[in-house]
Design a protein around this nucleic acid. Sequence first.
DNA 1: AAGCGAACCTGGCTGC
DNA 2: TGCAGCCAGGTTCGCT
Length: 290
Amino acid sequence: MPELPEVETVRRGLQPAMEGRLIVKVEQRRPDLRFPFPERFVERIEGQTVTALGRRAKYLLADLSSGDVLIMHLGMSGRFTILENGQAVQQGEFVHQAGGLPAHDHVIFTMEGGTRVIYNDARRFGFMDLVPRATLPESKHMKGLGLEPLGNVLDGETLIDLFAQKKTPLKAALLDQSLIAGLGNIYVCEALHRAGLSPQRAAGTLTRKGRMREKADTLARAIRDVLSEAVEAGGSTLRDYAHTDGSLGYFQHSFRVYDREGEACTRCGAPIKRLVQSGRSTFYCAACQK
DNA sequence: AAGCGAACCTGGCTGC
DNA sequence: TGCAGCCAGGTTCGCT
């Protein structure tokens, strides 16, 4: 479900409920999600204040007054719901009923004042961890992460260097979190279409020679554009709703290729095709993505 | 060492 | 209507 823009949207939705607020109670309703919860998970969080709620790639990072950082990953199906006085603040697909928790509510944070922040994850591919702030950069989840695509360092030159000599398809290289951290299946498809590059082209063919040099710049810009537009679209739904469920907001209506097999390419009119690369669906236009 | 495919888990949709 | 089969936005593991 959530790629970088969705995680950023969730972060912004959770911020008013959590940042600067005391967590008075934590309910951990099972021993593990994708991985076991860390030792003393509940005790290390209860009584702490969230001093900042940040994001790195697809990870949410809650700084606690204790000096720990609560690392949260949403996996494929993770969502957050904010409940105030038993009423969901957000627009959501499911409703929390009085008496009886919905299935898959795994962690419930009760904030000072009674607001509840509920983590729900049907597939349990998400996880949470706690590490001391000082060790965060070297922690197992942060250590291998590549560059942040919305930072100021992603340009054509950087892509060329990152992908040099790689025979793996561009699609796979862009999904590799150790190179660029935050892209997922949807936005890789979208960025490649915008750049007019085939998902099957070897990543190492992005070079400094001739038109491929320009293509590298175009791809870098496409990545930044598609992510920032999606963040913007998610942000627009925040105006009226907490919108913390990790759903795609309104940007899904802007997909040019993702899940549009058979539809006409917005650039050349040829039918969008679907293929499977390393077990994932790729949507692309075979006519204008070279 | 890089580059695949499979595995993790549940739910929703499609087609017979 | 029922049910098997396929698909899903992520990451990690293990095998070539």
